[in-house]
Each structure stands twice: as structure tokens, then as C-alpha cells.
């Protein structure tokens, strides 16, 4: 039986990850270890969480440019409340998550009810969140709250001697829940339907308004959570955290095989898209002589290849219909 065509992009993504990892293992000593794999998760936990939220947005046919700024705002609000106002983390973290969700749903509502391109609305959201950071403070706020430092330093040892961080575990849980949601719940399927055709979704009686707003709410929530995780990682709040991060996130989703026009793709693909970005960075750091900007060039190249691949696949799909 030939490979089902709908799986081609995700299979390409997974193969790409395996090839890169294997190639890295052959080339560098110490590359092939469980710990390197775990580090991919530890270092990219916040990217994974944000990309999961972004996957839903892109699957629904939209885009969210505000995620990077939202992360920065979350770190800033957390740091400010915990450090400067002495609020307990138990209160601060839910509050930050709530803020992210509310911010996202606000953007979703504007997008849906006023029919303004998601690009523009989330661009405004991006400016807004970034600007609000500076309203709180222009400088870095370092966190030395015991809860935050404890979470940051906790290493959970796995059988085999490698370890993983709490943030990575949160990210894995988020990814698992998202995969389930996308595949096994009505909300998830409605997101796909919306990305396939908004007009049809409306005529099939699907809750278009609710789904669309939910998608941006989810993305806002995810980026706020990513901000919390990022706070654990950096132990500081700063308005310049995660600048340009929305591009990394979108790239991870697209390299994960999700169609930027919506409707096609898998959260699992996004997971591997994030890992591929991580592997590229790891290889470059192992190489030593290669500089970090190669990451961007390679990611740009992969973006190009995947967009082209999808273009070719969808062109063949539509020619079949004729």
C-alpha cells in the first residue's frame, strides 16, 4: 500500500528530524545520547508550548503575531508581581494565564466580528503587549523568589541517568493534551473544518464564532504559559525577552507540515518541527565553527521547501478534482 498522501508532509518532517539527529550522532561524539534529546525539550519547552497554540491558530486559517510579546509580557507581569509586590506565585501564575487567555480572546473577537485580517489585529496585539512590558518597567527584573528558583533548578532524573526539567514536562503535557484535543474533540475537528472552508463550516452549522475566538484564546493562553515557563528558564522579566519569537513559532509549525493556509496539519508535526529547530541549534553548537545565524538561514530554507512541497501537493490535489 502506498503512503497516504495526507501523511507526506508529517512523514517528511519526522524523517528530517531522524536524519538530522543521526547525522549529528555520526559526526559529533557525545551527540548520540538521551540527554541531548532531553536537552532539546528542556531548551525548547516554551517554543513547544507556544507552537502548539500557534498550530491551532494556523490550522483554523489564521495567524498570531502576538505570541513573542505575550511571552515577554508574562515574564514581566510575573516578575513584577512576585518580586516588586510580593504576591505569591500560586496567585500570580493563574493570573498571568488568565491575562493571556483574555488578551487572546479579545483579539479573536475583533478578528471575527469586525472581519479584520488576523495579521493586522495580532500585529496590534504584538505592539500592545510589548509596549505594556515597558509600562511596567524598562529594565530587567530579576526573580529570586524561592518557588521560581526551585522550579528552575529541579531536575527530574530519568532511568538511564539523563534528566529533564519541570518545564519540559509541562510542555510535553501541553503537547499531549493538544494532540488529543485536535484529533478527538469536536472543538479540534471544528478548527480543521474552519481552516478548510469558513463558508462551508457556517453552512454545516458549526459554531464558527465560538471556534475562532477559542482558537485565539488558546493561543494567548499557551503563550502566557510559555511565558511562565520562560520565567522559570530565565528567572527574570524583561521587555526584550523573546523578540522575533513569533517567527520561530510560525516556522516550527510550518516545518511541522501544517499548511499556512489552514486546515491541514498535525500537532505532532509541530512537535517535530520544534525538535528540528532544536537539532539545528544543537548541531551548530556542536560544530563550534558554525555561527548561530546559520539556524535562521537553514530554517528559512526549510520554510521554503515545505511551502513549495505543500504548494505542489495541493496543486496536484486540485488537478485531480477536475
Amino acid at each position: 500500500m502506498s503512503l497516504n498522501r495526507k501523511y507526506i508532509p508529517i512523514v517528511v518532517t519526522i524523517l528530517l528530524f531522524i536524519i538530522m539527529f543521526v547525522a549529528g550522532s555520526f559526526r559529533y561524539t557525545g551527540f548520540f545520547s538521551l540527554q541531548v534529546l532531553m536537552n532539546l525539550l528542556i531548551d525548547n519547552a516554551f517554543l513547544l508550548i507556544t507552537a502548539v497554540g500557534m498550530s491551532f491558530v494556523i490550522l483554523s486559517g489564521g495567524i498570531d503575531l502576538s505570541v513573542g510579546s505575550m511571552i515577554a509580557l508574562s515574564t514581566m507581569v510575573s516578575a513584577s508581581l512576585v518580586q516588586q509586590h510580593g504576591w505569591p506565585p500560586v496567585v500570580v501564575i493563574p493570573l498571568v494565564l488568565l491575562m493571556g487567555a483574555a488578551f487572546g480572546s479579545g483579539m479573536g473577537a475583533i478578528i471575527h466580528y469586525f472581519k479584520i485580517q488576523p495579521f493586522i489585529v495580532t500585529l496590534a496585539g504584538m505592539f500592545m503587549a510589548r509596549g505594556l512590558c515597558y509600562v511596567i518597567s524598562i529594565d530587567t527584573i530579576t526573580i529570586d523568589n524561592s518557588f521560581y528558583t526551585a522550579v528552575a533548578q529541579t531536575k527530574i532524573t530519568l532511568p538511564g541517568g539523563s534528566f529533564i526539567s519541570i518545564s519540559a514536562i509541562i510542555a510535553l503535557i501541553v503537547a499531549a493534551v493538544a494532540i488529543y484535543t485536535a484529533h478527538y474533540t469536536r472543538f479540534g475537528r471544528n478548527v480543521y473544518a474552519l481552516g478548510g472552508s469558513e463558508q462551508s463550516s457556517l453552512l454545516m452549522g458549526l459554531p464558527v464564532a465560538r471556534t475562532k475566538i477559542m482558537v485565539y484564546t488558546l493561543s494567548g493562553l499557551c503563550s502566557a504559559l510559555a511565558g511562565v515557563v520562560f520565567t522559570f528558564y530565565m528567572l527574570s522579566g524583561y521587555g526584550l525577552h523573546a523578540v522575533g519569537f513569533e517567527l520561530d513559532t510560525i516556522a516550527a509549525v510550518v516545518i511541522g507540515g501544517t499548511l499556512l493556509t489552514g486546515g491541514v496539519g498535525y500537532v505532532l508535526g509541530t512537535f517535530f518541527g520544534v525538535l528540528i529547530q532544536g537539532v539545528i541549534q544543537t548541531i551548530i553548537s556542536f560544530e563550534g565553527t558554525l555561527s548561530s545565524w546559520w539556524t535562521k538561514i537553514v530554517i528559512g530554507l526549510l520554510l521554503f521547501i515545505f511551502i513549495l512541497l505543500q504548494r505542489v501537493l495541493s496543486a496536484r490535489g486540485s488537478s485531480l478534482k477536475r
Binding site: R189, Y192, A193, G195, G196, S197, Q199, S200, S201, L203, M204, G263, V264, G317
Partner: peptide, 9 residues
């Protein structure tokens, strides 16, 4: 006439 389904599903 224009089939109102989602081609991606």
C-alpha cells in the same frame, strides 16, 4: 452546487 464541505477533512 459548489459543494459546501471541507475538502481537507
Amino acid at each position: 452546487q459548489e459543494v459546501n464541505l471541507c475538502p481537507n477533512l
